[in-house]
Simulated assay, not measured.
Amino acid sequence: MAKWRIIGLLALIGVGVGWYITKPAPLPPDALDGLTADTANGQIIFAAAGCASCHTSEDGPPTLLSGGRTFASDFGTFVAPNISSDPVHGVGAWSDLALASAIMRGVGENGAHLYPAFPYTSYNKAELQDVVDVIAYLRTLPASDQPNAPHDLAFPFNQRIALGPWKFLFAGQDFVLQDAPTPELIRGRYLVEALGHCTECHTPRNALGGLDTARWMGGAAHSSEEGRIPNITTAVLSWSEGEIAEYLKSGFTPDFDTAGGEMAQVIKNTAQLSDDDRAAMAAYLKAIPPVAE
Results as ranks from 00 to 15, higher is better:
residue 1 M to E: 15
residue 2 A to Q: 15
residue 4 W to G: 11
residue 7 I to H: 10
residue 8 G to V: 05
residue 11 A to D: 02
residue 14 G to E: 03
residue 15 V to S: 07
residue 16 G to N: 00
residue 17 V to L: 11
residue 23 K to T: 13
residue 26 P to Q: 01
residue 31 A to W: 04
residue 31 A to Q: 02
residue 32 L to N: 00
residue 34 G to W: 08
residue 35 L to C: 01
residue 35 L to S: 03
residue 44 I to F: 13
residue 46 F to S: 10
residue 52 A to N: 12
residue 55 H to E: 01
residue 58 E to H: 12
residue 77 T to Q: 09
residue 88 V to H: 12
residue 89 H to C: 13
residue 91 V to R: 15
residue 92 G to I: 01
residue 98 A to D: 14
residue 100 A to W: 08
residue 100 A to L: 05
residue 103 I to D: 02
residue 103 I to H: 03
residue 104 M to K: 12
residue 105 R to C: 10
residue 105 R to T: 07
residue 113 H to P: 08
residue 115 Y to M: 12
residue 121 T to Q: 14
residue 124 N to C: 11
residue 125 K to A: 10
residue 132 V to T: 10
residue 133 D to G: 00
residue 137 Y to F: 15
residue 142 P to S: 05
residue 142 P to I: 04
residue 151 H to W: 13
residue 152 D to G: 11
residue 160 R to A: 10
residue 161 I to P: 01
residue 164 G to N: 00
residue 167 K to R: 15
residue 170 F to T: 07
residue 173 Q to A: 14
residue 174 D to M: 04
residue 174 D to I: 04
residue 174 D to S: 14
residue 176 V to L: 11
residue 177 L to E: 05
residue 180 A to Y: 07
residue 191 L to I: 04
residue 191 L to K: 07
residue 194 A to W: 09
residue 195 L to Y: 10
residue 199 T to L: 15
residue 216 W to T: 05
residue 220 A to I: 08
residue 225 E to W: 12
residue 228 R to I: 12
residue 237 L to K: 08
residue 242 G to T: 12
residue 243 E to I: 06
residue 245 A to W: 06
residue 249 K to Q: 13
residue 253 T to Q: 08
residue 257 D to Y: 11
residue 257 D to P: 04
residue 259 A to H: 04
residue 259 A to E: 01
residue 263 M to Y: 11
residue 263 M to G: 07
residue 273 L to Y: 05
residue 273 L to E: 05
residue 275 D to M: 06
residue 275 D to S: 10
residue 275 D to K: 08
residue 279 A to W: 03
residue 280 A to G: 07
residue 283 A to L: 05
residue 293 E to Q: 14
